[in-house]
Amino acid sequence: MPYGTPMWFRANCFSLTLTIDALGCYSTKTNTFAIKPGTLFFSRPNMHRQLEWQNITEVYHLTFSEHFLAKYAGVALFKTFPFLILESVVPRLADTEVLTDLSKICLQIGQVQKENSHFKNNIIANLLTRLLLRVKQHFWDGYTGPVKDKEPDIVMQFIKNLEQHYQQLQQGKATLQLRVKDYAAMQGVHENYLYTVIKEQTGKMVSHWIAEKTILAAQSLLEDPSFTIKEISYRLGFAYVSYFTTFFKKHTGFTPKDFRNKSNV
């Protein structure tokens, strides 16, 4: 102490940090926040961020992936908790009552994790969902998106569009997979510009974002035994099943069938 993370590190999952008693500083590419007792902040996968701690007495840090919540609690992250993706810190300090409430859930999660039961993951996912619901209840009642500033946030808007599109695909409301060009057109910017901004701010190419999302959607559809692989590939906008299989294998190392068998065991 004091301890700082290396410059701009990125994690591959969501994280949520609840500060009961600690001081420090949290910065993203665009903003810097002071960490005081009662601060609650989070990060999404592949977000550049930096953390510095002056002292730590009581802090809870949770990391989880979108897939974990979808598999064990059936949560559509973007639909139910949009703030996780679009914000990085709660708008105000939490008061003591809320803090004790939230930290109680964190402690419970810690307790369940030590147990050895077949339903461990389901219960953790359930508790995590409750934690997020409480956060939503206390801080983001009626939330739809970040407050608009003058310059529209291209990255946020892109992620939002992406999420919405994949939700529609999964529900079968859309049949065509959107391409980089379409996402650029949705925001009224040029393809190349969108490409540069996304690559610069997130460190990933647009096509990577799209591919990752496709895999995630495919995985969650595969876990539902009521869809055939053919149906899934059409639903996600692939014209040929063989193309879907190749694509899936390239990104995950498994064929869709293997994945389904594995997740059913």
């Binding site: 139910t80 077949h118 339903f119 219960i123 359930n126 409750r130 409480r134 209840q137 009642d141 009626g142």
Partner: peptide, 26 residues
């Protein structure tokens, strides 16, 4: 409170999970 029914549904599921955990060891 807002979203109270979501929280209630979450709590119900927690109960069901605990019951199932007790019921099945496998």
């Amino acid at each position: 409170t807002p979203y109270k029914y979501e929280v209630i549904a979450n709590l119900i599921l927690n109960l069901l999970l605990l019951i199932r955990q007790q019921q099945y060891t496998e």
